[in-house]
Every structure is written in C-alpha cells, then in structure tokens.
Amino acid sequence: MNQDMTSAMTGQREDEEAVPPPYDEGTAEETTAKMSRWRLFAGRLAVLVVGVGIWQLVAGNLIAEFYLPKPAQVLTALVGWAKDGSLFGHIAATLVPAVKGFVIATIAAILLGYALTMAKLAAKVIEPFIAALYGIPIIALIPLMILWVGIGEELAVAVAVLASFFLMFYNVYFGIREVSQALIDQVMIAGGSKWDIAMRVRLPSALVWVVAGMKVAVPHSIVGVVVAEFLTGHRGLGFLLSSNAAQFNAAGTFAAVAMLAAISFVLDRLLFLLTRRALMWKEASLR
C-alpha cells in the first residue's frame, strides 16, 4: 500500500489523472479484512479452549479440587444459579451501580477537565489537591461513604464514581490541554472561531484519551462496586464471591470470578464497538 502511494506521489501528474478512481480495489481489501478478523476470532477461541483444557487436567490431579475445582463443576454452579434465577439478579445488582457510577464520573470529569483547561490559573492552583485526592486509597473512603449514603445501592454507586472519576479526569484534562498550539493557530487562521476550536480541534483531539480512559475506568468502576459489596452487600457478584468463599465453596467462588471476567470482556467489546467509528483515523495509521 505504501509503495503504491509513493509511486503515485512521485509520478507525473499527467499519469496520475489517468489512474482509475480511488478504492475500486475495495472488494479485495474487504476479503482480506474479513479473513484476518476470522483468524483473530479463531485464535482467541483456541486460547480459551486450550486454557480450559489445561485447567481441566490440572484440577483434581495436580491440585486438589478443594482448591481448584474442575471447569465442569464451575459450570454446574453457574447453571444452578441461572436456573434458580439468582444469577441475573446478582449481575444486575453489580452492573447497574457500576454503569451509573461510571456515567456520573465521566460527565463530571469532562466538565471539570474542560473548565480547568480554559481557566489556567485555577488549574495550577487546584492540580496538587486533585493529585492528593487521587492518592487516597478508595477503600479508606468507604467508611466515610457509609456514613454519608448508607449501605445500599447508593454506596456502590458512590464507590464506583470514586474509582473511575480520577482516571477519566486525568485523561480528559490532558487530552484537551495537550492539543498542539500549532493546530489551534492553523484552524484560527483558516477562519475558525473559539467554538470551532473547541468542537473541531480540542474535542476530537481529546477523544483518543477519553476512550483510553474509559478502557481503564469501566473495569475500575466494577471493581469499586465489588469492593462495596464485599464489605456491606447482600446482593451482587461481589457478595456472591465473598459468601461462597466464606463457605469454602471453591466452585461457587470461581463461578463468581468467571462472571466478573465475562462482564469485563463484554463491556470492553461494547466500548470498542461504540468508539470504533470515532477513532477510525487512528486505526488507519496502524493498518
């Protein structure tokens, strides 16, 4: 592809006009893209199958089932929960506060990030305080949160906000701030207003960072909810995990962990699909 471009570029203009319209070779390209996507999927499936296979062999032979249950036992536990209907209730109890917390944190992060980029002096004053707050372990704040909002779903949401806010904030803040001044000057000279700069330069430029922040912040908001459930919950995957572990039920504990992993995976894929179109230009450079 690169060679094509170089030759197109160094060739004479008269020649170039004779070249057929762009992208009629699209079908061939699409086929290879489809094939590589299929290979990727097959590879991932293979990793999963081999991993579970090794697990099945090791459990009960090298390591006692008390410590490491067989995959089949974990599956049985999951199916049992699914049948009695408790599984989806637990998933929802974890997922809903995690998503709520993440959305609140993201909106707050974008607002504060943008405001601080615009008010440079305020940003300089506040920055060390934000860093200090970020340094506090979330677990240390949970007793305070309990005092403030009690031990219901509100606690889970609050902890999810705390867990994801700073990750989002730093990404948004630096994303908006680190836009090259040369780009801004160019767009201004080309006729752009302040609003154009905000919407056509700062925002798209920050989007890469925002998406990168989401990739880290979404799992963290789930971690926050699970921690809250550990400590105070009577529902949710964190509760399922801690109650099974307390009963020395390894299969149940593993089943809860597997559910958490599955949720993280699904959310990550969802995020990827949602942001793919917006970051198409970034992908273009990797092809």
């Binding site: 471009m5 570029m9 170039e16 006009e17 319209p21 762009p22 198409m280 273009a284």
Partner: peptide
Amino acid sequence: FGLTNAAALYPAQLS
C-alpha cells in the same frame, strides 16, 4: 495537486 487518489486517506496514511 495530483492528489485525487489520496482524497479519502487520513493524514497518517500520507507520505
């Protein structure tokens, strides 16, 4: 400018 074929490309794909 002889860039018809590059119109739909992103800057990262340009020489």
